[in-house]
Amino acid sequence: MAKPAKMLGELLGGLFTKPATVLYPFERLEVPPRFRGRIAYEAASCIGCKLCMRDCPSDAIRISKYEGGSFLFAFVSARTGERKLVEIPNNAKKRHRARFRLSRCIYCAQCVESCPKKCLRSTDQYELAVLGSNIKPPKR
């Protein structure tokens, strides 16, 4: 407290300048270029080299293979609770899929750097918190 009033000019100036902050949910600041947000995956160009998996420091990404042809999807009927398997034809080009665990991802974008085919990229999505899980357990 050598000079207690050192900031006086700064403070009084603050009264007459625009606030540096915004009212967040109503106004948003523009995301800076090359912002590292949620990772987007493009299956069509993925060759399944799994370099991203190797480099990921928090073990948040998993690349797995689709076994050709078609794959099965399990549906649960909301009315009867009956399980039904539906066969979905595979997209000819799509041979791999990526699973991200957003709770582990630290958004370092190392996977984006590592990918030789540029099928991973950072987006500007940063509002990734949700109120509840979207995955509902089957009704009994």
Binding site: L11, G14, L15, P19, T21, L23
Partner: peptide, 11 residues
């Protein structure tokens, strides 16, 4: 409000 404006917040 004054405190916030001096700190350049919205308040």
């Amino acid at each position: 409000k004054l405190y916030a404006r001096m700190q350049r917040r919205v308040g």
